[in-house]
Design a protein around this nucleic acid. Structure first.
Length: 183
DNA sequence: GCGACAG
DNA sequence: ATCTTGTCGC
């Protein structure tokens, strides 16, 4: 089972966190949870986890099933301190996790080929911390990195498998939809 | 030293 | 993230 996580913001300081658990094989919804709350930390690049983590952890605690993988909206290892949102969530829950970001944040990379599945490394210092991955032909790549208890090849395989039709993996799309529309 | 910077 | 106007494509 694979869980997608996302947070939606309303008004001054209100937020809704959503977690959607999908059957890894059929990509059908197994369970979904939303948590409403207020922001307790501003958006600061590099400290993103402090903003979204509390509500997401609460949503995860309300699940009746235990996911085998957390698919997070943001970075994991590819982070200025090597510890993005996906890492925090993975360590706190003890579950394998990965991060999928929509824009480049740290490190350097070249543009991957335009075919679905092509990728280039994201390099920070002298190590590879993630990949710019093309999930759909000629569509902007996504930026993936390991969170916890997962390697970069597995991250790449899973994200591709979970994004058969659109740019973003289904778990994230469904969590995004749930957080903003409540269904 | 200054600016830019996941969502 | 959010907002807004406009365009493209199935």
């Amino acid at each position: 089972m694979v869980a997608g996580l996302d947070v939606h913001y309303h008004g001054d300081d209100e937020l809704t966190a959503a977690v959607v658990v999908l059957d890894s094989g059929t990509l059908s919804v197994v369970e979904q949870v939303t948590v409403h709350g207020r922001t307790t930390f501003p958006y600061v690049p590099g400290l993103f986890a402090f903003r979204e983590l509390p509500a997401l952890v609460e949503a995860l605690e309300r699940l009746t099933v235990t996911p085998d993988l957390l698919v997070c909206d943001g970075y994991g290892l590819a982070h200025p301190r090597g510890f993005g949102l996906a890492c925090h969530l993975g360590v706190l829950t003890g579950l394998p996790s990965l991060g999928v970001a929509k824009t480049p944040f740290v490190g350097t990379h070249t543009t991957p080929g335009r075919e679905r599945g092509s990728w280039t490394p994201i390099v920070l210092g002298d190590s590879t911390v993630g990949r710019a991955l093309r999930t759909q032909r000629a569509i902007k790549p996504v930026y993936v990195s390991p969170g916890h208890r997962i390697d970069l090849d597995t991250v790449t395989d899973q994200v591709l498998r979970l994004a058969p039709r659109f740019r973003l993996p289904d778990p994230i799309r469904k969590a995004d939809h749930l957080a903003r529309h409540g269904t």
